[in-house]
Structure formats: structure tokens, C-alpha cells
Amino acid sequence: MTLPDWMKGPSIEPSGACVGGRQGFVDRSLKGFASFFKKVYIAESFSAKDAFLQRLEPRASLAGFFFLILGAALSGSWVFILSLLFFTTGLSVITKVGVGPLLRRTLPAAVFTLLLAVPSAFSFVTPGAPLVELGGLTITSEGVRTAFFFVLRVSSMAALASLAALTTTHSGFFRGLGRLVPAFFVTALFFTFRYALILVKTAEEAALARKSRTICGSGVMEGQGWSASRAAFILKRSLSMADEISMAMASRGFDGHVRLNPAGSFKAFDFIWIFIASFFFFLSLGF
């Protein structure tokens, strides 16, 4: 093989106009998202701890959380929702998860809900006694209460869902869910999770590959163009992976009906947990 002349000499220095390998907005966002996704959904450090909720049979754990979340969705009482939030915070301590990690996972849902709830504080959505005048718009006390209650309700539900996910191993989570809802939904959910993992991994690898060949920093426009082209590539790759997985399932006898291993038996703690959770649920009906 004969090398071209330029390849035989030393590599050239980047031109003077070059800014240097600064990390762009797109790279930072992607890195942040991948890290968040891994931390929240992949890390099993909390579910591996030896504590009350982690010791429960996954079916019992998920059934209990289901009752609590349902209670939060149905109750119209401030006292109930606040009690539930305190109860969840207490559970996070008992289960060795801690308030900080739970808050980090709940906060994005709370902030997003707050943004959605802002309009309901104004009189054009919730009429009532005026509280503050803002540039011709009136914020009502009923509106503020409605918005705040909505944020509290969603936050408590998000905290409960996060705690369920944090204290249950992924395998336990899907196995437990498989006994509570039709297997088809669990399979669909599992595949969604699986593809999300593949997407994150592929996107991260693509970003690293780009970084390894980036000598000059790139602008936001160029970064956005690159992201758009990667999105198409990742979609194509995930479709191809979906094809391969369905073939692998067919190859091992899958005929559209998922058959799972039988679940383990309930112990005293499982019944206690379900009793506590269903107690909260029945309380929510009265408030």
C-alpha cells in the first residue's frame, strides 16, 4: 500500500482562527441528559441496600405504591397530601435513600408542573378574590390555592413513584409489574426502557466519537445540525435493533403471549406494607 505524500509528513497545526476544543451547548446538554438518565434509571445503588422496602416482594411493594399514588390522585385535602409528603420523606430515610436523592428526582416534575399551573393562578382561569394585580392581569387567592395544591399533588405522586423506582431493582420492578398489569403492557414498557438505554448509549458514543475528532470548537448552529443528523441515525439504529430483538424472541418460541416465571410468596412485612398503603388510600376517599 502506498501512502499519499501528505500522510508521510507531520500533522499540520490548526489555523490561527481556531478557537480550541471548547465543549459546545449541544455536547453539554447531551452529556448532562445521559448522566441524569443513568443516575436516575440505571443506578441500582439504592435498591441493593438492605432496608424495609427493598426487602419486600416486588409485587407487594408496587401494589402498596399504587395505592398511595392513587390516594394522592383522589384526595382533595391539603392535610392528606401534606401527610403523604411527610410519610414519603420518612420512608426515604427508613429505606436509606435519603431526602436529597429523592428531592433531586422529584424536583424536575415539581418545576414542570409549576410552569403548567401558573396560568390557573390568574382570574381568567380561576375567578375569585383578587390577591395581586400584574400588568392588567389579576391573580386570585383561589387561583393560587388551586395552582399550589396541583403542584403539591403532582410532587407527592412523583416522589412516591421515584421512591418505588429507587427501592426496587429493575428486574423486580418489571417482574412485580408483570403480576399486576397485563403482560403485554409490561413487555411494551420494558422495551421502551431498553430502547431508551440503547438510544442514550448510541447518542453518547456518537458525541464522544465527534469529540475525539474535534480540533476547533464548533458553533451552536453546527452543533444543532449535527444533533439533527444524529437523531436520524439513532432512530434508524434503534429500528434495526427492534427488528433484531423481535427475531431473537421469535427464535426462542415467542408467539405473542409472554409466559413468565411464577412470583415468590408474600411474607408478613409484605402484608403490613399493603395494609398501611391501603389505609392511606381509604383515608383519601374520606378527605
Partner: peptide, 26 residues
């Protein structure tokens, strides 16, 4: 039985134990 070139395509269950159980159960 078919062992795929890319194991990631073939492993779709939550745990290794369930992965091995999948075929016989089906």
C-alpha cells in the same frame, strides 16, 4: 436455536436468570 452475532439483540429480559427461562417457558 440461534445465537445472534450481537448479544445485545438477543438479551431482552430484565435479568440473566429470566433470559435463560424465557425460551423454555414459551
Amino acid at each position: 436455536g440461534f445465537v445472534f452475532a450481537e448479544p445485545d439483540s438477543q438479551l431482552f429480559c430484565p435479568t440473566v436468570r429470566e433470559e435463560l427461562s424465557f425460551g423454555p417457558l414459551q
